[in-house]
Design a protein around this nucleic acid. Structure first.
Lengths: 106, 106
DNA sequence: ATTGTATATACATTGACATGTATATACGTT
DNA sequence: AACGTATATACATGTCAATGTATATACAAT
């Protein structure tokens, strides 16, 4: 999870991921779409690959990259667990002060 | 969104966030729970604060930090948009090859 | 075999950021 | 006012990772 976050935090890789969300793309297509140098795209793809976020398949000299579900699903679930934040009714600060008072009393 | 990811990518801040998910905490409580030096906790909290991910309220000398929903909700929605990855039936690679063939023909 | 196209790797340089440590500020208590 | 506790800031240092650039590999076509 840590690795996935770190990998996504880099803006170019974020862009690559958003592009691949549309569907698989070859390296050249990514280079053209994003205007990043080819070596850098390859390097970012390598990092994404090592993070398990993409896979590549060969078609002649082309390498077609596509997203892998796993890490995204994992983070999706993690962020879901924060939904208490915007669904919770009782203000957390009030709750904290209640606990605080309790400790003072004891 | 970029900022939120970058902020979360740092392991100590990730830990702080997980801790605050349990409820508001003072700086001292965070220091004790995570075993990070106080200046570093304060600094990480500052970064989290600037990212809009936490807010603090004062109780005497204490600063009580709590999570702010916004950025988490935003990322939750973003990751939701990837659910096509694990719900999609048609293999994306096949799809790509179909498009590829189409371009060759034209 | 030679050439062209597509992609990957290697390496040096730079910049950003986490960490360690010292110190400042804020507030309460006596 | 003086001291203790809680928290924030400042600054120097080291590390890691992104970038620029050159080059290597893989495959296809002629």
């Amino acid at each position: 999870m840590q690795v996935t976050l770190l990998t996504l935090a880099e803006p170019n890789r974020f862009s690559i991921v958003e592009l691949l969300k549309m569907g698989p793309k070859s390296v050249g297509e990514i280079v053209q779409a994003l205007g990043i140098s080819q070596p850098h795209v390859s390097r970012h793809l390598r990092i994404l690959s090592e993070a398990g976020m993409v896979r590549s398949r060969s078609k002649a000299q082309l390498r077609i990259y596509s997203l892998e579900a796993g890490p995204f699903q994992e983070l999706d679930e993690w962020f879901d667990s924060f939904s208490i934040l915007w669904e919770e009714r009782l203000d957390n600060f009030e709750e904290y002060m209640l606990d605080y008072k309790k400790k003072e009393d004891s």
